[in-house]
Design a binder for these strands. Structure first.
Lengths: 340, 340
DNA sequence: AGCATCGATGAAAACGTTTACGTTGCCCTC
DNA sequence: GAGGGCAACGTAAACGTTTTCATCGATGCT
């Protein structure tokens, strides 16, 4: 079908080796033959076959990203950060996502063998056994937000505990005491870290007050339901910390519909700092991580492993920062509480 | 470095051909040899080399997506739609984006040769000459939101004109007359279509009223600036239609800060129906396209071209639907204007 | 018993490149 | 003028697969 290097060679009356040298600028060809080869290649619309090239070169200039999902702001930002950094390093991006089973994730991972120079893995299935089984040996790999804490691979994750601590301490600082927590999907590692930090912060700062934990599913609807349950409690919590922003927003809707005021009656805080958090009213206090930075840092780490073949196996945590907004500030002293 | 099919063959004391047959389930191997090969392959952690395989197979099970950018809700949704559909067809996704120059886009496109079975192209640089020059001949391709109207390639686009018409006619129906339009980046094809439809709808329905057009850059800040300019005009426009939602949101901020009310003093409408549009207050009227549907439809079309090698060269427009919300409804009759 | 058939297996070609190595012809130097 | 050096170019191997074809033994049939 396509036109190959042989066609160009035949048409330009040289060997395939010369065509390769000419087109890759390796020198060793006269100016006039180079020109002739260029002309023929352009005329024939010759485009080198990437698979064939990388078979011999052992370089694909591509990195694979194994993600659990592509939905929502988090992955959008993550991919953007990865892509931006990849572009700097001249790398392309092979993404694979939405695999709900471990088997599917495994086959996606295996399908990347030979097509990528390195791997960015973020998957709930990525435990030690899974990786040992499906990760090509010797392939540079960086893990993101994984449960794994061994030193076999480089790993980057968001500082869930630190962020959650910031939120809880802020709420306590504002005078709230009965602080509820809305969980995310069961088994989610980020959620577990956030919840544990919430419990620990509470135990450390207000030892007498028991934690209040409600289930959630990361989506707005489950936040709404949690909000309804929360309102019905007695004594009613005076603040709620949702494991992500979308649930916090759902929760706010439930609180408002019950005729209660935010933050006077109940304060609401989230996690992630999605763009929308600034726009809801009142604006949502949340712990944000520059997700794009996470993606960028992960790719830089991977690129380092690929280029210089050092395997430093860094473990790094991306810090979360607290964005204080109107949803948790009783008094108007906060600068985030602008005229709404 | 890695373990190849030869290693497995040697270890299992068979030929590479038998290993290939066994592992691909092509039959022609005894049950016991099959089992032995499987065992060896698992023990050696053999993973087939994708590039080598697709070199001979002429199938990569991968489609390439050339996108202008990855930032924001639009691309997030688009990729999600593509990815979801790709998964159904067993295809992986090689994305390339953020190429600001035509040269960069070209090299990205060429780098995909031999690594993909088909191409999804959405690029401002993708004019006829560009495609003829850089598109591998015979590679299935679907264009998205492109200026191209020739029948050479299949093409899908959002119905910008239809959506813009819906918005303008809705505003006119609500009694607004001096309707301003905020543009997007110059040269953007979508924006051009929206603006033209705006002008045409105005000319058709209220022939005397001149169009009012302000520059914009698709981001919130430029919407804010446009809002400030708009407020200072006399006579002041009583409605504004921004070429996308983020600018509309920026514009709303400017209007509010000037002490004017939305929609009583100035109505605001956008385009895209980003998730945030429902959450700003007042909620934003906008023309939405199910972007994920666009991505899905594009991939389905491409998959059709790849599997059955028919090249129907369909041209299809994804309809936009009007989401009427509080930002344009003077009276409370709209169901979207819930208690805020 | 002889012959055709069939299933399992191996040898080798092919896919489209890059690159190590040879070969050629030229120029320069002694 | 012979030899050496060098630049340009060609030959062929290599990358890791799949697949066609040939081989071989065993089996079934007459």
């Amino acid at each position: 079908m396509g036109v190959t290097i042989k066609d160009v060679a035949r048409e330009a009356k040289v060997s395939v080796a010369s065509v390769s040298r000419a087109l890759n600028g390796h020198g060793g060809v006269t100016a006039e033959t180079l020109e002739r080869i260029r002309e023929v290649a352009a005329r024939l619309r010759y485009i080198p076959h990437g698979a064939a090239r990388s078979l011999i070169t052992r370089r694909t200039h591509t990195i694979g990203a194994l993600l659990p999902d592509l939905y929502g702001e988090f992955f959008s930002e993550l991919i953007r950060g990865i892509d931006l950094a990849a572009r700097v390093h001249g790398l392309q991006l092979l993404v694979s996502s939405s695999h709900d089973g471990a088997a599917e994730a495994a086959s996606a991972l295996r399908a990347m063998q030979g097509r990528v120079d390195g791997l960015l893995v973020m998957s709930p299935h990525a435990d030690a056994a899974f990786l040992r089984q499906n990760l090509p040996v010797g392939l540079p790999t960086v893990l993101m937000n994984t449960v794994l804490e061994r030193d076999d691979y480089a790993a980057l994750s968001v500082d869930n505990a630190g962020g959650a601590r910031l939120v809880v301490e802020h709420l306590l600082g504002e005078g709230y005491r009965r602080i509820a927590f809305i969980q995310g999907p069961v088994g989610n590692h980020d959620v577990a870290e956030r919840e544990q930090a919430y419990r620990e912060a509470l135990a450390a700062r207000v030892p007498g007050v028991p934690p209040i934990v409600l289930p959630g599913e990361f989506d707005e609807a489950s936040g709404y339901r949690a909000g309804q349950r929360l309102i019905a409690m007695s004594p009613r919590p005076d603040a709620v910390f949702a494991a992500n922003d979308m649930m916090a927003i759902g929760c706010m809707a439930a609180i408002r519909e019950a005729g209660l005021r935010i933050p006077e009656d109940i304060a609401v805080a989230g996690f992630d700092d999605v763009p929308m958090a600034r726009y809801v009213s009142p604006a949502l206090t949340t712990a944000g991580v520059r997700i794009a930075e996470l993606g960028k840092a992960a790719l830089e780490q991977l690129a380092g492993q690929i280029e210089g073949d050092e395997a430093p196996a860094v473990h790094m945590r991306i810090a979360a920062e607290l964005m204080v907004r109107a949803s948790t500030t009783r008094n108007q002293k906060s600068k985030a509480a602008r005229a709404d």
